[in-house]
C-alpha cells in the first residue's frame, strides 16, 4: 500500500467518527464503561496477586536432620539439597539457635527450657525455599525420601488453602475481564454495524469502481482503533488518579504489617498500557467483525 493511501484511510476513518456522531458516542461509551470495570478488576487482581506473592514467599520447608547424622553427613545432605532443581535458598539453623528462638518466643515460660541447653532435644534444621512457592509440596516430599532426614514440615494445610484461595481470585478476575471484553466487542460490532448499514451504498460503490476488500476495510480498521483508544482515555485517567490518591491515603498503612499495596508508579503505567491495548483490540475486532459481511457485494 502506498503512503498517501494510508493517509487517506486514516483521514477517512477519522471523518467517519465525526460523521457518525451519536454512534461514535455510543461505542466510545461502551468501551469506557467496559474498561472502567476491567481496569478496576485489574487493579484489584494485581494487588491480590501481590498480596498472595508476599504470603507465598513465606512458605518454606523445614528439614529436620537425623540426630545420628555427623557433620560430614550434614554437608552431604546440604549438597544434595543444593542439587535439586527449583530450590531457591537453603539456610542452616543449628539446634542451639533453634532453642534460642524457641525460648525467646515463649517469653517467661521459656526459661524452663534453659535446663535443656546440655540435652538439646531439637534437631538441626535446613530451611529450604522453593523458587516457585507452588512447588513447595513436591519439594517437601522429595526431600523426605533422602537419607539423614528425619522429617519435613511445610505447613501443609495453610499452604494448600492459601494457594486455593489466591488461584480462585485470579481465575474469577480473569473470567470477569474476558466476559466484559466480549460484551464490549459485541456492543461495538453492533453499533458499527448500524453505521455500516448507512454506508452500505458507499461500500457497494467502492466495489463497483474496483476497490479491493483490503482498501475498503482500512478506514474501518482505523475507525475501530480510534473508538477503542478514545474509550480508554477516561478510564485510564480516572483509575490512575483514583489509585494514586487511594495509595496516598492508605497505601502503605494497611494495618497488616507484611502487606502493602502496590506502588502507583509502575502499576498505573502498566494499567494504562493494558487498558489502551484492550480498548484498541476490542475496537478493531468489533469493527472488522461488522464490516465482514458487507464486503460480499
Amino acid at each position: 500500500m502506498k503512503g498517501r493511501t494510508l493517509g487517506r484511510h486514516v483521514k477517512e476513518g477519522g471523518k467517519n467518527l465525526i460523521r457518525n456522531g451519536w454512534m461514535t458516542f455510543a461505542s466510545v461509551s461502551a468501551v469506557t464503561v467496559m474498561l472502567l470495570v476491567v481496569g478496576t478488576f485489574l487493579l484489584i487482581i494485581m494487588n491480590v496477586n501481590h498480596f498472595a506473592n508476599s504470603l507465598e514467599d513465606d512458605v518454606e520447608v523445614r528439614v529436620f536432620i537425623d540426630f545420628a547424622a555427623s557433620g560430614d553427613n550434614q554437608d552431604e545432605l546440604y549438597s544434595e539439597l543444593d542439587q535439586i532443581p527449583g530450590v531457591a535458598s537453603i539456610e542452616f539453623v543449628p539446634k542451639e539457635e533453634g532453642l534460642d528462638s524457641l525460648i525467646s518466643s515463649l517469653g517467661e515460660q521459656g526459661a524452663i527450657f534453659e535446663t535443656l541447653r546440655d540435652e538439646n532435644p531439637l534437631n538441626d534444621v535446613f530451611v529450604v525455599q522453593a523458587e516457585d512457592p507452588q512447588d513447595t509440596a513436591d519439594l517437601a516430599s522429595e526431600i523426605e525420601e533422602m537419607v539423614h532426614v528425619e522429617s519435613v514440615e511445610y505447613g501443609k494445610d495453610i499452604f494448600d488453602n492459601l494457594f486455593a484461595a489466591t488461584n480462585f481470585v485470579r481465575m474469577i478476575g480473569l473470567a470477569l475481564i474476558l466476559a466484559l471484553m466480549f460484551t464490549a466487542m459485541f456492543l461495538i460490532a453492533n453499533t458499527i454495524k448500524l453505521t455500516i448499514i448507512a454506508r452500505k451504498r458507499e461500500i457497494q460503490i467502492m466495489k463497483l469502481v474496483g476497490a479491493t476488500n483490503g482498501f475498503i476495510r482500512w478506514p474501518f480498521f482505523v475507525e475501530g482503533l480510534l473508538l477503542g483508544v478514545l474509550g480508554a482515555i477516561i478510564p485510564i485517567s480516572l483509575l490512575a488518579y483514583g489509585y494514586t490518591s487511594f495509595y496516598g491515603s492508605i497505601g502503605t498503612d494497611t494495618g497488616i504489617d507484611f502487606f502493602t499495596f502496590l506502588e502507583p508508579n509502575p502499576l498505573t503505567m502498566q494499567m494504562a498500557i493494558l487498558l489502551g491495548s484492550i480498548g484498541a483490540f476490542v475496537g478493531i475486532w468489533g469493527s472488522m467483525m461488522s464490516v465482514r459481511k458487507f464486503l460480499k457485494v
Binding site: R19, R201, E202, Q204, I205, M206, K207, L208, V209, G210, A211, T212, N213, F215
Partner: peptide, 30 residues
Amino acid sequence: IPYIRRNMGVIFQDFKLLPGLTVYENVAFA
C-alpha cells in the same frame, strides 16, 4: 474481481453517487 472491474465502467438508473462528496470528489473516488 476488483482488478477486472477497473477495466470497465458501470452506470445505473439511480446514478449511485455518494451524497456526501462533491462532483469532483465523486469522480476522483474511482
